[in-house]
Amino acid sequence: MTNSKSNVTAIIPCYNDGQYIMQALQSLYNQTLLPEQIIIVDDGSNAATRNVLKQIEHPGVHIVYQENKGVSHARNTAISLAKTDYILNLDADDYYEPTFIEKAVEVLNDNKQLVAVSSYCRTFKKDKTIDIIEPLGGDLKDFIVINNARASSMFRKICWEAVGGFDEKMVGGYEDWEFWIAVLKLGGTIHIIKEVLSHYRVKKFSRDQKALQNHDLELRQYIYLKHKEVYEKHLDFYVFQLLRQNSLLRNSIYKVKNSKEYNIGSLFFAPLRYLKNKVVKR
């Protein structure tokens, strides 16, 4: 294990994740280059999670307790206490591979134009792999349609200071996407390490799922209006990408509707629809 100063503070916002946070912490303890400090902000968790947090006795871990104010506020609280140049974000239910900090620090040290470093990410549920996410990173234009990085990333604290932190109004989700856009507006790029160095837990009821299912349009509108000048500057690119996504979606729907499985399903449910229509007409 490398003992040299990493210039890294790891922050962990925690809300009712007592059953997972020890795995997240252990992934930081196991790093080949250790963070200089780990700051956990408990965002108004239940008693069970607080009991777990009270059992943590590590000289490098500092725990802050606050009323529930959302993940953006929790992250901002933690980062405001950090004394290092680099910030490592880790949600309490996720974890890193042991070499992430070492590799991310090396990349940031070697390229002053980089504002953040992320990596490929494995999504999993109950230890079963669901997918491997491969974001592209890039500059501002690469982030106006989709989030091309991950929340599990390392970034420069000076960038966080320059944009005023994470937007605390975005309690419904997508706050990390908006943060990257705000940071990249000032210049620079985000680098992606093309290795699976982070692991994202998919839970039955997750904040990201709620954001996608219930608030996607609302959150996208918020980001668009907040950074409208960016979208206007790259209007042709933005419209082309939306048209491309629409075309891909229409082709996918067409393939599904013309698949053998879809046709068999339609035939199976046809009698039920017929009976339903008869009942309604009566």
Rank of each mutant, 00 (worst) to 15 (best):
I132A: 05
V64S: 00
I101D: 06
N246P: 01
K276D: 07
T77D: 08
I144V: 08
Q31Y: 10
F205K: 07
K128C: 04
R273H: 09
G173K: 09
E229M: 01
A47K: 11
R220T: 12
L184M: 10
V230S: 02
D42R: 10
E261P: 05
E195M: 04
V145L: 06
G70A: 08
Y224K: 07
V8P: 06
D167H: 02
K233I: 09
N277T: 14
K278F: 06
V64N: 08
N16F: 09
I79E: 04
K255Q: 13
L212N: 07
G137C: 06
D42E: 13
N51Q: 15
W177C: 04
Q221E: 15
P271T: 13
T9P: 04
H227Q: 11
R282F: 14
G18F: 07
A92P: 03
A211H: 06
I39E: 02
I38P: 02
M170W: 01
E218I: 09
W177V: 01
T123S: 15
V115M: 10
V196K: 10
Q31H: 08
Y262H: 13
Y86D: 03
Q221L: 14
F240L: 10
L108K: 00
A92F: 04
H191M: 04
D42N: 14
S72P: 03
N3Y: 11
N68G: 14
A48I: 03
K257F: 05
L53F: 00
Y274N: 09
E57W: 04
L140T: 05
Y174N: 07
K69S: 12
D176A: 08
K169D: 15
I158F: 06
Y238M: 07
N277Y: 12
E261F: 10
K5D: 15
G173W: 04
P135D: 14
M22Q: 13
K103P: 02
S80V: 05
L140A: 09
N148L: 03
D139L: 09
E168C: 13
L217I: 10
S4L: 15
G173Y: 06
T9N: 01
N147W: 12
L212G: 00
K281E: 14
A24C: 04
P271R: 13
E134M: 14
Y222K: 09
S45N: 10
I38M: 10
Q55H: 05
A74I: 05
Q213V: 06
R150E: 13
R282K: 13
S206G: 02
Y15F: 15
A116L: 10
R201Y: 14
L242T: 11
D131Q: 12
D110C: 05
K226V: 14
F155D: 08
Y262P: 04
Q66I: 01
L235E: 12
S80E: 03
G138R: 03
R282Q: 13
K226R: 15
F237W: 03
Q37H: 02
N246L: 12
L33K: 09
N46K: 12
S27M: 13
